[in-house]
Every structure is written in C-alpha cells, then in structure tokens.
Design a protein around this nucleic acid. Structure first.
Ligand SMILES: [Zn+2]
Ligand SMILES: [Zn+2]
Length: 752
DNA sequence: AGCACGCCGACT
DNA sequence: GTCGGCGTGCTC
C-alpha cells in the first residue's frame, strides 16, 4: 500500500474546491462525495483521475477522483473526509474518465467498476504508478585495480567481478546478469568489499530492445495501394474504415504502411487483436518492419508486466501497443490511430461483469481523440458491414490475393443417403486420398473436441449428463474421462449404465479425438495431427505440432476453431468442413453469421502458396440458399443477404437489443424476479420497446445456477436506454437479495 | 461486493 | 447460557 504523498510546506491553497466525487470499486451506480481536508487542499492540487484513500463503511478503499466540486447534495454529517492522496499526477486522464462515464451509461454498469476496470490490477490495489526497480551493478575504481587472482577460490565472485570489468561503461543489467549466469549474492559480497557498487534504476524495456534491422517492404498491389492512400488521407481526424480483405490479401501490409507513416510523425498506435490472435509470427512481423518500441498487453502477463507496459504507453515511450480487449483503456500521449484486427472476433465483447465491446469502445475513443480507427477482417461482422454499406464507415475492399496465390474453390458435398465413415462421405475420403498422393496436406475442421459428444445406454437409453448443467457429458477416450464443456466438472469414464447396470454403453456422434483415430486407421502412412484445446494444453505443444506440419509434405490436420486463428499452413491444399450445417437451424440469430465466418476463416488456411486450394463443405442441405450463396458467391453476398433477413425480422443491427440476465440456485427465483421486472417496466416506461420473455436460458442450469433472461428491443437506442435506466434502478433495489445475481447485457452476442 | 448487525437452532 | 448459521441492510 502506498503511503500518503509526503508533506510539503503549507502556503497557498492549491485545491480550492471543497468536495471530491470519487469512484469506488463497488457494484453501486453512484459516485461518492468526500470532504477535502484543508491539510490536503493546502499541500496538493487535487485533480480528476488521481487516486485517493477513503473510508467506506467500516473499511478503507482506494478511490479515483472523478470530479471536484464546490457543492454536494449531502448534509455535512453524512460526509467523510478523504484520508490520503496516492498520486502526484492523474493515473487516468480526463478523456479516459469521460470514456468511462460514457461506457457506464451505455452499458448500464456501475461507474466505479468501469473506472477500476480501466486501471491495471496493481494500481487498483493502490500501488505506486511507477516502473519496477531494477538493480544495476558497476565496477568501482578499487574493483578495476583489484587482482582478480585473489578471488580464484570464490568462483562466483570471480565471474561477477570479471563481467563487471568487461561491462565497465554500461554496467550489468539484471538481464545481462541472468544471461551470464551471475549471482546477486556474489555481487553483494563484492559490494561489501567495495569492489562493485549498485544502483536502483527504473525498469524500461526501451533501453534493451530494438536490435532489429528494418526489412525492405514488399511492393503493394493496386488494391493495397489504393486502400493505403485512402487511409493516409483519413489520418489526423476521426473516421472509421473497414478494411474488408480476403485471407491472404495483405491487410497487415496495409497496416504497416500506415503505421510507418504515423510513426514518422511521432504518433502512437494501438493495435487490438483477438484473445488468442497474437501469434509470435505476427509480432515478429511488426518488430522486423517497424523500427520502434512495441509493447504487448494481454492476459498471460503478470500484474507487474502489465503495469510496466501500461506505464511505457502512458509516458509515450511505447509507440506501438498491441493488446487484447482491455487494451482499449491503455493511456497514451499522442495516439494517432487505432487498428482492430479480426474485428468480427467475439472475444472483443466481454462476457461477464462489465460487458463492453472493445471494438465499439475503441470507436468511441477514436472519436474523443479525433483520430481514425481501422477495422479489419476477412469476414466482417454484420454490424460493421451494415455501417460500411450505409456509408458510416469507409469501405475498403481487398479482393485479390497478394503475390501469386490463387483463390480456393468451395464445393458442397451432399451427405444425404451416403454411407458415412465417422462423418466422412466416400467422396470426401477420395478427395483426401488424391490430395495426399500429390504430397500435399489436408485440413479437417470439426468444431467439437473430445471423442464423442454423447454417451448412451443401449438397453435403457440413459445419457450421461452433467450434475451441474443441462448439458451432456463429452467422452474423452484417451484421458478416460467424461467431461462437461460448460462447467469444468469431469468424472471417470463409465463402463456400466448407472440406471440399468447394462454394460452396453455406446457413443453417439464424433469429436476431433475420434476423427483423429479413424484417419490414422484409414491413412496409415500419413501423420495425423490434432489441434484443439486438449492437444495443445502444454505450452510448447502448438509450436511442436506446427513444426511437424512444416517438416512433412503429406499430413492431415484435424482441429477445432483453433485452426481459424492466426497460423497458416502453406502446404494445405484441401480443407474439409465436416459439418457446414451448424448455423442453419439454430434458435440463435447470430449462429449463421458465426458459422460462415468460421468456415471462411478455416478455408483461408488453404492454398496460400501458389498451389490451388479446394474447400469441401459437407452438408445435408446442399440446396439451402445460404449454403449455396456462401459457396458460389462468397462471404460478402452471403452476409448482405443475412443482413436483409435481420432487417425483415427486426433484429440487430437494425434494431437495438439488450438482455437482462438473472441466475439463482433456486429453480424458479430467477424467472420470477424477471417477471416482476417485466411488470415493473411495462408500468414505468411508455417508451416504444418490445419485451420478449422472460424465458429460461437454453441451458437452464449452468454450473449449478438456474438462468433466465428477459430480452428488450427497440428501434431507437434512446428508447432502449430509457427502459434500461428503469431496469437498472430496479436491479439496484433488488441488490439486497443476495440470492439472485443480475446482469445487463447491452448489444449481446449470446442471446440464449 | 464486503461487512456488521441481529435473530434463531444446537452445542459445551 | 453462547457459538455460528445466513437473512437484511448500508456504504458519501
Ligand atoms: Zn441403461
Ligand atoms: Zn457442467
């Protein structure tokens, strides 16, 4: 915990306002007013964005000043005083606080939780907003004169002093110490003898990197050139562009040209990537082309690493910040551009707590900073396509593959009446055989991991299901386990029916583990490699698998949606989509969009080299208009058709939606509460909104909780917000009932 | 959310 | 008698 900022000499009043409005990390909608003690007001100029220590009920908390005020609504006896100041300068600038307030209003989420979400964990706890301290070692004058041979019995000290002498001018950084395998204890011993000295220095990545040489950029094709020129013209003011480019069309090259130009003007650039989208390949590509300091922000970093990265960005030292969803809150000095790669990716939407959309907040931030924002994808979200089609976004299309690469063809494989081998039609197997004979690789996509999604009893029809969810257990054969993919519960594999004690248990359906097995049998000579969450659990597993793929010429890759992200496989010329019908008859109106995006993303992995690629879509509905359209005309016409349907059905993005979720242990409590809310809403608001439900979630029980939801829709956002304002009021009144948990989800991606 | 306060059952 | 269960209410 930080100490109160040291006392200065009391002279003129530095803070004239009497009250501070403070955001606290509690699930309450309001800010909290505190009296500014005279002692503090004389010594410090308080500003919005500074952290303070405050008494709150029976405890002490870290708060963030959002506003200073001459007045307060509260009576003097209801007010407490600030206890201390934690910062000399604001940790959140005014623009970012405004963005937080906007987000709190838009997502109907408590302002305090939003503001704290925008800070790194260490700052939330009250730690100093400072870089990590590092110890650097230097040889002293005595150390230089010293006869090294006297230390020949103390090998560690010998090595340490020797190294310190060699690095006399710059000293030994912790990084160098670990490279040379030097021990801190040896340094301490030498320091006591006066042979070396040490200095505590601020950690700065900038001091030790950019050892890269700039690579020569490839020439752009006319489409890329045109897109780049248009984007360059957009710089310097707010505007949105959709870079809608098929896989392999060279979107990244367009980013790099644009970034290069902005870096010359000493601007910073924020690049947002999906949760697992940042492959080492992509990072290396950025590093090798941009001669500048790049900083990463993602969930696999320690709290300390995150704070250091955050500080580098905040001081303007990191010119390029690459990060996931939460990076939208990274502070900057001179932000010039925000890029959102794979903008359709669902990981940009937070799925619990503060349910914001990173893409939408990035657009709002760009507006506030008056800079452009670039959304890029091979499969744009319907929302972004709609904005592009209605001219809100500049629509930049890249329809040619860069270099010599040829576009893959998409073909439907009719599964009707075929005798299938674990989901493979004879036609598919034949195509695979031919491909492997040409010493090329096959990629098989099935979005279902494990061995089989169902375990059933032949005698009584019993199905293995989760004790905590309304879901069936997935069979994992190799692990010999039954696993629930919705909560994390697992149990040992069963070999006897718990109902009728029959031993005749059998599996229904196929997962990647089973497909891998059958392909090993059918194609005995060919290595089969599986890529899913199970096969890549160990840290190095994925790199090992990709290594193997590049070593062999023929190979079969089996995998889930993990295949759709990042990695490309240049020798893959055949892609098999096991089940293209996934989105066809779903109750979820976004299922079609998601399935199509997955298919196109996976298909994009094929034939990247100059060999032509082929994509087979296995389907029971080859004549279905949507499948036909996707196959024959591609993603854009398919998506535009989907958008028309959304309009007719009064669905987003034409109508605005919010969902209020409730969950409780009790079977009926959640439903009942939402019924009451519905009644309350229909009494309290006259705004034209449509309420649907409440209805039980598709999976009523998830991790032991019963879930229900109420959907609100409106043609005008203002009307939706009016209703939601009433709803959030009602929910806060219910907060005393600790048995039901509520959440408001504005612009939900999951609607069941 | 956290934390205190308060009111009932089942323990030394 | 009192220890602790969790239902209820409050936090500037
Ligand atoms: Zn049975
Ligand atoms: Zn479960």
């Amino acid at each position: 915990m930080n100490q109160e900022v040291a006392q200065a000499h009391s002279e003129p009043l530095l803070t004239s306002e009497r009250y501070a409005r403070v955001a606290l990390n509690v699930p309450l909608a309001s800010l909290f007013d505190y009296q500014i003690p005279k002692a503090l007001a004389y010594r410090h100029r308080l500003e919005p964005g500074m952290r303070v220590k405050v008494p709150f009920g029976p405890r002490h908390m870290v708060g963030v000043i959002v506003e200073l005020s001459e007045t307060t609504e509260l009576a003097p006896e209801q007010l407490k005083a600030l206890q201390g100041l934690l910062d000399h300068t604001p940790v959140i600038e005014k623009k970012m606080l405004d963005l937080c307030s906007w987000a709190a209003r838009y997502y109907h989420h408590p302002i305090g939780e939003v503001v704290f979400h925008a800070l790194p964990t260490l700052l939330r706890k009250g730690d100093h907003a400072e870089f990590r301290q590092e110890t650097w070692w230097f040889v002293t004058e005595a150390g230089k004169q010293f006869d090294l041979q006297k230390l020949k019995n103390a090998k560690r000290q010998f090595a340490f002093l020797d190294a310190a002498r060699q690095h006399e001018s710059h000293g030994l950084s912790p990084h160098l110490c670990s490279l040379l395998d030097l021990q801190t204890n040896a340094g301490k011993a030498l320091a006591e003898k006066g042979l070396v000295r040490f200095e505590e220095r601020e950690f700065r990545r900038a001091q030790e990197t950019h050892a890269h040489q700039k690579q020569v950029p490839p020439t752009l094709n006319p489409e890329q050139e045109q897109a780049t020129q248009r984007l360059l013209k957009m710089c310097g003011q707010f505007g949105c562009a959709l870079l809608d480019g098929i896989t392999g069309s060279g979107k990244t090259e367009v980013f790099l040209r644009l970034m290069d130009q902005l870096l010359r003007d000493d601007k910073q650039i924020l690049v947002m990537v999906p949760e697992i989208g940042l492959t080492p390949q992509t990072l290396r590509r950025f590093e090798s082309r941009l001669e500048t300091d790049i900083v990463l922000m993602h969930s696999n970093m320690s709290d300390r690493e995150r704070l250091d990265a955050w500080l580098l960005a905040e001081r303007g030292d990191a010119k390029v910040i690459i990060g996931t969803r939460s990076a939208v809150f990274v502070p900057t000095q001179k932000l010039g551009l925000i890029i959102i790669d794979e903008e359709h990716d669902a990981s940009y939407k937070q799925q619990d707590g503060f349910r914001y959309h990173g893409r939408d907040l990035a657009i709002k931030r760009a507006q506030a900073e008056n800079i452009p924002v670039l959304l890029a994808s091979a499969t744009p979200s319907y929302e972004s396509l709609h904005n592009a089609a209605s001219k809100k976004f500049a629509w930049l299309k890249l329809r040619q593959r860069a270099g010599q690469a040829i576009l893959p063809t998409m073909e439907r494989v009719d599964l009707r009446g075929q005798s299938l081998l674990k989901g493979f039609s004879p036609q598919t197997l034949e195509a695979m055989r031919q491909c492997l004979q040409r010493k090329e690789q096959v990629l098989v996509f099935l979005n279902r991991r494990g061995y089989a999604p169902t375990l059933m009893c032949h005698q009584c029809g019993w199905i293995a299901s989760c004790d905590h969810c309304d879901a069936n257990l997935t069979v994992h054969k190799k692990a010999n386990k039954l696993h629930c993919h919705h909560c994390d519960s697992h149990q040992a594999m069963l070999h006897q029916c718990p109902e009728c004690h029959s031993h005749e248990l059998f599996t229904v359906g196929e997962g990647t583990e089973q497909i891998e097995g059958i392909l090993n049998e059918v194609f005995k000579e060919t290595p089969v490699l599986r890529i899913d969450r199970d096969s890549t659990q160990r840290k190095s597993a994925l790199t090992q698998i990709t290594q193997k793929i590049h070593e062999h010429d023929q190979a079969i890759l089996v995998g889930t949606q993990m295949l759709a992200k990042g990695h490309h496989f240049p020798n893959v010329t055949l892609v098999v989509i096991m089940d293209a019908d996934g989105g066809l008859f779903s109750a979820d109106f976004r299922a079609m969009e998601r399935t199509a995006q997955l298919i196109i993303q996976v298909a994009g992995r094929a034939g990247r080299a100059s060999k032509p690629g082929r994509v087979l879509l296995q389907t029971y509905h080859p004549e279905h208009a949507a499948i036909q359209c996707l196959c024959e005309q591609g993603y854009e016409p398919f998506a535009l058709g989907g958008l028309k349907e959304r309009q007719q059905l009064m669905l987003p993005p034409f109508f605005h939606q919010a969902i209020i979720r409730a969950e409780a242990k009790d079977e009926y409590a959640a439903m009942q509460a939402l019924n009451e809310l519905r009644d309350w809403l229909s009494l309290s608001t006259t705004a034209p909104i449509a309420m649907l439900g409440p209805y039980a979630a598709i999976m009523v029980r998830k991790a032991g909780q019963h879930r229900a939801l109420l959907s609100l829709k409106a043609a005008q956002r203002a009307n939706l917000h009016e209703a939601l304002a009433f709803a959030s009021q009602w929910l806060e009144l219910q907060a005393k009932n600790h048995k039901i948990r509520f959440a408001i989800d504005v612009d939900p991606l999951e609607t069941y």
